[in-house]
């Protein structure tokens, strides 16, 4: 196994791990907002690592770049969808779990509970 192959395998495994984290988060997190975190962060990172791992093994530069190109597309899509869903949930008056009582956020910003 060349170092490149080892690196690639490592990236792929790490990517799969983040996918798993996304799924676990989706199942365990308490509300829509928190589950959005799981989806937008863990899964996207998982895809990024897998794309990078596969791109390292690609036959030529263009093919590798094409595999990598998938990642930013998914990022843009997820960011937009995440915002659309979070905003809609907020509009519909869905309160985030555990935020009913005021807490002092770090960094001294004012904060609010449910709508």
């Amino acid at each position: 196994m060349t170092p490149l192959e080892a690196l690639s395998a490592l990236l792929l495994l790490a990517g799969a791990g983040f996918y798993l984290a996304g799924t676990v988060g989706l199942l365990r997190f308490p509300d829509v907002y928190a589950r959005l975190h799981a989806l937008t962060k863990a899964d996207n990172l998982g895809l990024g690592l897998i794309a990078l791992g596969l791109a390292l093994q690609a036959e030529n530069l263009a093919a590798g770049l094409k595999i990598l190109l998938v990642w930013p597309l998914v990022l843009v899509a997820s960011a937009a969808v995440s915002f659309a869903i979070a905003r809609r949930a907020h509009e519909l008056g869905i309160a985030p779990a555990g935020a009913a009582s005021p807490v002092q956020p770090a960094g001294g910003v004012d904060q609010r509970g449910g709508p």
Partner: peptide
Amino acid sequence: PMLRTLAGVAVPL
């Protein structure tokens, strides 16, 4: 504006 920006980025692609 969010959706419009998304359209502006995604549609050319």
